[in-house]
């Protein structure tokens, strides 16, 4: 059984994918129903959270693939950067009120990555395991994401629209 804190954590993850409250709840509710039917009980607490998070992600991809190609596909052609280090989200400075606009302008896969990197604070290796891709690719995505957010922040500071 997931407690209230865990359910809220999963809801925020679903929200990072959908960026819409109603869709996030529907996504969580349907994934939880499927999860409960499977009776996944052998995993540890964190393992169960990860399992359900994967189910939420797969469900999101299934639901949206037809309308929007899986957002990560555009990333997969990017050559992996193997030797760079994991950047820290603390190094990116923004105006607090900018976060809503930033989230709205990111794609679903970018919001998901932002959630795992800046909020859940997983390492590149852990993110790579969850997204099933090489660590170097995750680092490449994060560097792109960081650059994009910095650009948005600078554009906003200069008074332009994104």
């Amino acid at each position: 059984m997931f407690n209230e804190a865990e359910l809220n954590r999963l809801y925020r993850y679903a929200f990072s994918l959908t960026n819409a409250e109603a869709s996030a709840y529907d996504l969580l509710q349907s994934a939880l129903e499927k999860y409960l039917r499977l009776s996944v009980t052998k995993l540890s607490g964190d393992g169960q959270l990860r399992y359900l998070r994967t189910m939420i992600r797969n469900r999101f991809i299934d639901q949206y693939r037809k309308e929007h190609r899986h957002p990560h596909q555009e990333f997969e052609s990017v050559e992996a950067l193997i030797s760079i280090d994991m950047p820290s989200p603390e190094d990116v400075l923004i105006e607090s009120e900018q976060i809503v606009d930033i989230l709205a302008s990111l794609s679903a896969s970018e919001r998901e990555l932002l959630n795992l990197w800046a909020l859940e604070e997983y390492t590149a290796k852990e993110i790579a395991e969850q997204l099933d891709c090489p660590r170097g690719t995750v680092l490449s995505w994060i560097h792109r994401l960081r650059r994009k957010i910095r650009n948005m922040s600078m554009v906003k500071a200069s008074g332009e629209d994104y």
């Binding site: 989200p89 603390e90 990116v92 976060i99």
Partner: peptide, 10 residues
């Protein structure tokens, strides 16, 4: 910092 702004929002 980005993570603090994100956490406050989320």
């Amino acid at each position: 910092p980005l993570n603090e702004a994100l956490r406050a929002h989320v």
